[in-house]
Computed example of a mutant assay.
Amino acid sequence: MKKLSLLLTLTLGLFIASCSSDDDSGSKNNNCVTCEIELFGTVNTTDYCDNGDGTVTVTAEGEEEVVDLEGATFHQFISAFEQLGSCN
């Protein structure tokens, strides 16, 4: 169930981020943001760190995964999660 929640979070975030028209070409390298999103009655806390190369390191429940932003900026990626929960 934990992996399913992470997969749904990542998939939804990438889908929304790829549809965004915002541009933040000056994103900072190694910028990290923590987001809390409620899915299926459970609050999921995930850390997202901009690698500065078009990828993000996602850390959830002690597991790390590198995700390709597929052309979206880090700002667009995080903005998608801000619409679903709170990020700081």
Rank of each mutant, 00 (worst) to 15 (best):
T42Y: 00
T42E: 01
T42H: 00
T42F: 00
V43T: 13
V43C: 06
V43Y: 09
V43A: 13
N44T: 12
N44M: 11
N44D: 08
N44S: 14
N44E: 10
T45Q: 06
T45G: 05
T46N: 00
T46M: 04
D47M: 15
D47L: 10
D47P: 08
Y48C: 00
Y48N: 01
Y48P: 01
Y48W: 02
C49S: 00
C49D: 01
C49E: 01
C49G: 00
C49F: 03
C49P: 01
D50H: 07
D50E: 03
D50V: 04
N51F: 02
N51Q: 03
N51E: 02
G52V: 08
G52Q: 10
D53R: 06
D53V: 06
D53H: 04
G54E: 00
G54S: 00
T55A: 06
V56Q: 04
V56M: 03
T57I: 12
T57A: 07
V58D: 02
T59V: 05
T59R: 07
A60K: 15
A60T: 09
A60R: 13
E61L: 10
G62H: 02
G62E: 01
G62V: 00
G62C: 02
G62I: 02
E64V: 10
E65W: 15
E65C: 15
E65V: 15
V66E: 06
V67R: 15
D68R: 15
L69Y: 14
L69E: 08
L69K: 13
E70I: 14
E70W: 12
E70F: 08
G71K: 08
G71V: 07
G71I: 08
A72K: 11
T73M: 04
T73N: 13
T73L: 04
T73P: 07
F74W: 14
H75V: 15
H75C: 04
H75Q: 08
H75T: 11
H75S: 12
Q76G: 13
Q76S: 15
Q76Y: 09
Q76C: 13
Q76F: 12
Q76D: 15
Q76L: 12
Q76T: 14
F77I: 10
F77V: 12
F77R: 11
F77W: 15
I78R: 11
I78V: 12
